[in-house]
Each structure stands twice: as structure tokens, then as C-alpha cells.
Design a protein around this nucleic acid. Structure first.
Lengths: 111, 111
DNA sequence: TAGTCTTATCGTATATTTGCGATATAAGAT
DNA sequence: ATCTTATATCGCAAATATACGATAAGACTA
């Protein structure tokens, strides 16, 4: 592959791609779903709900946290995670900016 | 890794993850952007606009097509691509279903 | 037919992701 | 102090993704 070319795209393009990448695995979608459904924050309950080892779940949580889609705080001997709604709104907004704004005039697309 | 565990998640979770994965690279975001901006469908003009080799762009186009985010038809000696707005709407709808419906009652999240 | 232009696919090198067990770390309990 | 419990991190193996050059395939042109 020689060199990663990702840096040669715009900041906004990389941003959107990073958000999407954080959601590009069903395990991470499942984690976000659990966090969205519970009012109190979750820790290792997620491990119980997923068909994955504890270390693997921890890794997925770290990726979501690094991407900014969730927040995590230490609560005594356990860890507490929540969805970062603001980040999700930003993602959704950028998506809509990319597509919806241009949609009307493209109705007559050729294929 | 032994075995991919992706199959052990729900169909919906896999669906959303696949959509996200298709958008998880800045080159593919850039391609979608170009397609969204042009009324007539694009072919190798995309190659001119991206800092990537022709074969690499072709590969990215194939991934977007496989994921259903774009459509492609052969037009004489060249290929014509367009955004599949329906697929995008579905993706956006699933995202909103996952998050927005549950957002209000979670305002008092703990972290 | 031969030549050209456009796009897709193959082969390959390298990078990244995914997953797990083992181990570390940190807090609470005995 | 030791044991338990919960979570993070390390190290490794296997799978995927990314990128490119070379080549194939298809359609128009001379």
C-alpha cells in the first residue's frame, strides 16, 4: 500500500469518514443501541449482552470513545458509558448537509 | 480472530454497520459528494478529482455500489454513476430510529 | 483491422481491524 | 494484607481493507 492517502482529503471528509468508521461494526451499533435504551449509564452489562469476550467489548468501547460517540467515566470499581448526543447531532447534521441540501435538484438523475 | 462474529448480530445491526462501513473512508465520502453535486452522472471525472489511481477509485466505486449507496450503468465506452437516494434515506431513517426516538428521555444521562 | 480510450479486474504488498487469552490495574470486601 | 470483582491493556493470530501497476474487456475511430 506504500502510503495512506487519507490525509489528502479535506478535514470535513475525514471527519465524516471517522464517524462512519466508528459505526461500521455491528457490535458497535449494538453497543450504541444499548446505551440509547438505558437512562443510567452502562458498564459490563454490555459484555453480558454481546456475543464477545470482555476484552473485545472493551476495545470496541474504546474506539467509540476515541471517535467521540460515547463518553466514559470511572465509577468506583466499574466504568460508566453514555452516548454523546452532541457528537451524534453533528454527524447527522453533516450527513444532511452533504445530501439533503442537494437532493431536490437532482431528482432527474440519469441512473 | 478465528471466526468473524458479525453474523451473530441482528440483521438490522448488520445493515446499519454496512451502510456506515461504505462511508468509512474519506475517498468514498468525496465520491458521494461529487455525485451529489452533479446532475448528470459521473464516470472517470472522479478519477481526475481524487488523489488516487484509477484502479483504486474503481475499487471504491464498486464498494459503494455493492453497499447500494450508488447505482452504475454502462454508457457506451464509459461508466455512469449516481447516488441512490432511496438507500440513503433508509440509512438516515434507521439512524434516526436508533437515536432520536430515545433521545428525550435520556437528557439526564449521568456522564 | 488496428489503434485508442475508458473502465474493471487481477495480483500483490502493506496496513489496519478484529478477536481472544493472559495479564495488569484499581477499588471494594473480608 | 489478601481476595474478589470490574475493567483496561498487551501480545499475538487471522481476516480485511487500501493502494497500485499491469492487464483484460468493451466500445468507438480511422
Amino acid at each position: 500500500m506504500a502510503i495512506h492517502k487519507k490525509e489528502e482529503f479535506t478535514h470535513k471528509e475525514q471527519d465524516l469518514a471517522n464517524f462512519a468508521k466508528a459505526m461500521s461494526h455491528p457490535a458497535r451499533i449494538a453497543i450504541l443501541k444499548v446505551l440509547a435504551q438505558r437512562n443510567e449509564c452502562i458498564c459490563g452489562e454490555i459484555v453480558e449482552l454481546l456475543p464477545l469476550a470482555q476484552s473485545t467489548v472493551s476495545q470496541h468501547l474504546k474506539e467509540l470513545k476515541t471517535a467521540g460517540l460515547i463518553t466514559g467515566t470511572i465509577d468506583g470499581p466499574r466504568s460508566c458509558y453514555c452516548i454523546n448526543w452532541k457528537a451524534f447531532e453533528k454527524f447527522n447534521g453533516e450527513l444532511n448537509f452533504l445530501f439533503n441540501a442537494l437532493k431536490v435538484k437532482n431528482e432527474k438523475a440519469c441512473c
